[in-house]
């Protein structure tokens, strides 16, 4: 793990959605150049944490610092321009636009870099095949690939990825794991992934944070959590023997 300052730091972040108090003092550090997994049961506040980082919900208290700047009150486009790419849970692709147009939109700083596009096609060959097809007609897995491709089409400092394996068949999840390994290998970027699938999480994560009831209740190295069955049982309520 890097000894440099964390790329992203959340300090006592509280977020309200209407009358509901969802995040109740989230403290989280995302180390540079590592893949951090954010785990927790449904409703623990994982997605709200990502949306708060992106400015899609604004924190009512606490602070979000990214790369030395306090981005707590920033508008979403400014946060994106600062170098954070977000892949939402529902994929958020533009269904009426083609695969090509979806990627062109994401390449905000200019034309798509040909070498990077070739690298993406290597990760997700289906995107090359359906290059000129409307994204709405892709399968669930292909849409997820497009969604991730859109995030990585330009170098970014931080990727926020919400449940990339949700609803995907095991074979596609295996592809996704391979793609993430490739992504970790090929680019010096920091990734924060919200995940429910522990098998997926443990195969990729360098660091891990576990949330419950709107707070981070555990943070540390993934290897430590993988090695400690009791901790898994206590934090995640998992009997992981069948998942190991």
């Amino acid at each position: 793990m890097s000894e440099r300052a964390p790329l992203l730091t959340l300090n006592g972040v509280n977020t309200h959605i209407g009358p509901y108090h969802i995040l109740q003092g989230v403290d989280l550090e995302v180390p540079r150049g590592a893949l951090t997994m954010l785990l927790g049961r449904n409703g623990a506040g994982k997605t709200t944490t990502l949306r708060t980082i992106m400015g899609l919900w604004h924190a009512s208290a606490g602070s979000v610092r990214f790369d030395g700047a306090d981005i707590t009150a920033w508008a979403t486009p400014d946060i994106a321009r600062a170098g954070i790419a977000y892949v939402p849970e529902n994929m958020g692709i533009f269904a009426d636009l083609t695969v090509r147009e979806n990627l062109l939109l994401a390449a905000r700083s200019g034309p798509i870099d040909a070498a990077r596009l070739r690298w993406i096609f290597g990760l997700f060959p289906a995107l090359e095949k359906f290059w000129l097809l409307a994204a709405g007609v892709l399968s669930g897995g292909q849409k997820q690939m497009l969604s991730i491709a859109r995030a990585i089409i330009e170098p970014r400092k931080l990727f926020l990825i919400d449940e990339p394996t949700k609803g995907l068949a095991p074979a596609i999840i295996a592809n996704m794991i391979a793609a993430f390994h490739e992504l970790k290998k090929s680019s010096d970027t920091t990734i924060l992934v919200v995940e429910q699938n522990f098998l997926f999480a443990k195969s990729l994560g360098d660091a891990v944070a576990v949330m419950d009831n709107g707070r981070v209740v555990h943070a540390g190295a993934m290897t430590a959590l993988v090695a400690d069955r009791d901790l898994q049982q206590r934090l995640l309520g998992l009997s992981l023997d069948r998942n190991q």
């Binding site: 508008a75 958020g92 533009f94 009426d96 905000r108």
Partner: peptide, 16 residues
């Protein structure tokens, strides 16, 4: 067109 389809998503891509 991206804004028409999903305004928040367009914002998250960095478009004002």
């Amino acid at each position: 067109q991206a804004i028409r389809e999903n305004e928040f998503r367009a914002e998250a891509l960095g478009y004002r």
